[in-house]
Design a protein around this nucleic acid. Structure first.
Lengths: 211, 211
DNA sequence: ATCTAATGTCTAACAATGATAGATTTCCTG
DNA sequence: CAGGAAATCTATCATTGTTAGACATTAGAT
């Protein structure tokens, strides 16, 4: 043995990189398959065998890329936060007077464009969240939101008394509106729920301003 | 056959009533067992065999009282709405100036006193809600809330521009706060989440007043 | 070019789950 | 007491997530 056998140093040889890339692609394909099935038939229909079959593999293949079915769900949750962040960042570019509404509409649009991801992020049984530490993808989404809210306050010549609290408050309201709407629990349907959300947004935000 | 065999008339004979009563008691015991297990170990641990074993029965017993495991969940959801209604009604007795906060605290207290029911009511995968028609238990909770909000508005010499919309809006906010807090996604923990909820409540409600 | 070791994938099986059919017991009613 | 209905159990099913071990393929060193 010419080298210490303990920790295999990366050895960035020729095709080592390709193998790793292919591995990541396979992970992505598994995630996409699970997501597609969930989007079409709901999370109950997402089974290991269905995922594997969709890619023309056999069931145990999943465990070469994820430690369990649940860990695949967790990863999809992170994908969800990333996609949400992208939409929030885009909405933050809106001119200041409409920026608040744009953020809310971005949140809403994400939820209804990808309900399967939204469900994976919120409340789907089996996805722990607060139990472990908050994942960085969620922190990023939160930070994007905070910066946007602060910029809106600034544009009004005020500032947020408690920026973190303001984000939590607004986020909770948006989530509540989406959650009830998605469950079909708002009388006038989703269109009305969206209007109620936009109505409540402004006073809720204004109350977060200080000085 | 002396009578039409089609629809068996009730025949309210002697002990027929007791049988029916016992049947309802057994249903209640099954529901309670499921709820207890969920409260102690989470909904994932609620299995047909666990429920039956807890009552010293064999698994198929459940199907003599419920058409499926899911239908038992749905029934527990209804129990949840009933218990929530009871708390809301009690809170509606508070003096007008504190009544709004009392309603919110009642909602919060219910959620954290019976998280297993709260989860069964909201978002737990496998419990359809908006799909079918809204169950009467949920309508009752909603109505209790609406009457309370209207009474608060009246006490302030105003009225709600859109009573139904006001309830949906406030409800969404409360649900969002509880949901995020329960998932451990509010920075300062549940105590802070509760404070944020109470802070946001007033401006959100005030914006629902008209004239 | 060939041998060896690692990597990827499959076959076969496991225990646990929700659910059903049919036998069996228990209990009411006539 | 007899007959039937109601309640419960035994045994079994297909499906689920998961693992162990065999097989094949490829990478890297000789």
């Amino acid at each position: 043995m010419t080298t210490k056998p303990g920790l295999a140093q990366p050895k960035p040889s020729a095709s080592r990189a390709r193998r790793e890339r292919e591995r990541q692609q396979m992970r992505a394909r598994l995630l996409e398959a699970a997501r597609d099935i969930a989007a079409e038939e709901g999370w109950n229909a997402v089974t290991i065998r269905r995922i594997a079959h969709k890619l023309e593999y056999t069931p145990p293949i999943l465990y070469q890329y994820f430690s369990s079915k649940e860990s695949l769900f967790v990863e999809l949750m992170l994908v969800g936060f990333s996609e949400l962040t992208a939409r929030l960042e885009a909405a933050a570019e809106a001119p200041a007077p409409q920026r608040l509404a744009a953020m809310a509409e971005a949140y809403w649009a994400f939820a209804f464009a990808s309900p399967e991801l939204y469900q994976a992020m919120n409340g789907m049984d089996g996805v722990p969240f607060g139990t472990a530490e908050t994942p960085p993808e969620a922190k990023t989404a939160f930070r994007t939101f905070r910066i946007a809210l602060q910029s809106i306050a600034e544009a009004r010549g005020a500032e947020l008394g408690d920026p973190g609290g303001a984000v939590d408050t607004v986020w909770a309201f948006l989530h509540g509106c989406v959650s009830l709407a998605m469950a079909g629990r708002v009388k006038g349907g989703t269109e009305r729920a969206r209007a109620l959300m936009l109505n409540g947004l402004e006073p809720l935000f204004a109350a977060q301003l200080s000085s």
